[in-house]
Each structure stands twice: as C-alpha cells, then as structure tokens.
Amino acid sequence: MLEIRNLHATVDGKEIIKGLDLTIGAGEVHAIMGPNGTGKSTLSYVLAGRDGYEVTEGEILFQGENLLDLETDERACRGIFLAFQYPVEIPGVAGTTFLKTALNAVRKSRGEDDLDAMQFLKHVREKAKTLGVSDEMLRRPLNVGFSGGEKKRNEALQMAVLEPSFAILDETDSGLDIDALKVVADGVNAMRDPARSMLIITHYQRLLNYIEPDHVHVLVNGRIAKSGGKELAERLEEHGYAEFLDAEAA
C-alpha cells in the first residue's frame, strides 16, 4: 500500500525527517510513537502534501504511484486521509455542506456521479449515529466552538464518510476524555478492513489499548529507531523514550 524509502524532508530549510524507511501493507495498522519534536506530525504533513514541507531526498510510493508527484487534493482523492490533531474551524460552512463538497469531490475524481441530497443524508446519518454526532452538530459551522471531543468525533465521521484507503490519525487521542476516546476508537476499529491501512501517530500508549496496532515504530530524531509488535508500545509506556534518545546521542 505505502512504501517510504530514505525520506528526507525540511521545514523552513531545517531538516526534520532524516532518512526514514517505512513499508505498510494493505489492511495493516501501524503506530508511530516518539517524543515531542521528533518529526511525527511532519511525517503526516509530508504524506498529505502540505505546502512548506519539502522533500529533499527519497521517495514515497502509494499503491505503486509516486505520491510526491501529486497535489494535496489529488492525494486525498486517491484515498489518503489525515485526521487532524487540531481540526480547523471554517465559519459559516455547515458540517454537512463540507462533507458533501468533500465527498462529491472524491467521487468526481473516481468518475462517479454526485450523490443527491437524500442519498447523501442517509449515508452520513448512518455513520454519524455510531459516532454520537447529532444532526444539530452536523448543522453547526464546521468545528466552530466545538469541544475537543466533538472535533475528534467529527474527524472520525469525515473518515467514515469518505472511506479512505489509507488513514493517518495524528494525535487523535489528545484532548479526549476516556468516554470520547472509546467512541472514536470504536469508530476507527469499525473501519479496519483488509483493503484499508492506517498509520496512528501518538505520544502515549493509551490509544493503542483501544486501537491495537500490528506494528509499532519508534521515531527519534527523524528516523525509525526501533520497530516491533504491540509489546514495544508497552515497553515504552514503562521505560519511556530514554533508551532511544541515549542511543541517538551516543
């Protein structure tokens, strides 16, 4: 599904990702953990194609296609979805309007017709119900005045509606209380599918108790310092990142 080879990326001329290799197969869930400032969020922005995040070396193949040749919206239409750590407010645009515009843009790129209003609402309401997103919340301007939990549930809803083939969850657990975390995790788990891969970026192990990864990677100083199974996450919870930081310093 996704293959990253020797990736180097800079932000404002400063190198943040320094030779990262990562292969994610179809249907796999990977977690990337690491201390603050090691390039976790940078990686997610590079994958999504944000302006200002420049790849200086290496390549990224997504379903056999060179991802770096594609614009942000083209990547989204190919099935790359980023659940934001800080979802953005768009005043005056109702959640449903935003979702409908996005869904129809993605459908258009696949050569499918726009969904009409009735079909669309049916599609959204089904998904919204399981994530505890009310009709009232869907009518409100997108993310404006939403609580942390509402914002994250809304991101999960967008993911459920757009049905991406590759989802990146950037610090999805931040700002969530335990109940909201469960709702979001259930939503994400319901989307696990042999044809869909996920990359979970997180600081704490907590989220991984609810969304169990197949592989865990430790990102330190712009590189994968260690890879393993979910037991690696548990070890990190106990011992922290110190051993990897020391190894890096040595």
């Binding site: 999504a48 944000r50 302006d51 614009e71 942000t72 919206d73 989204a76 239409c77 979805f81 980023l82 934001f84 979802p87 953005v88 407010e89 768009i90 935003f98 515009t101 996005a102 843009a105 993605v106 790129s109 967008q158 757009l162």
Partner: peptide
C-alpha cells in the same frame, strides 16, 4: 483552512 479543505479532496 486551505490545507484542511484540500486534504479532504477540494
């Protein structure tokens, strides 16, 4: 805002 919309396919 632009990035958020573009990331959703716009």
């Amino acid at each position: 805002q632009m990035f958020y919309c573009q990331q959703r396919g716009l």
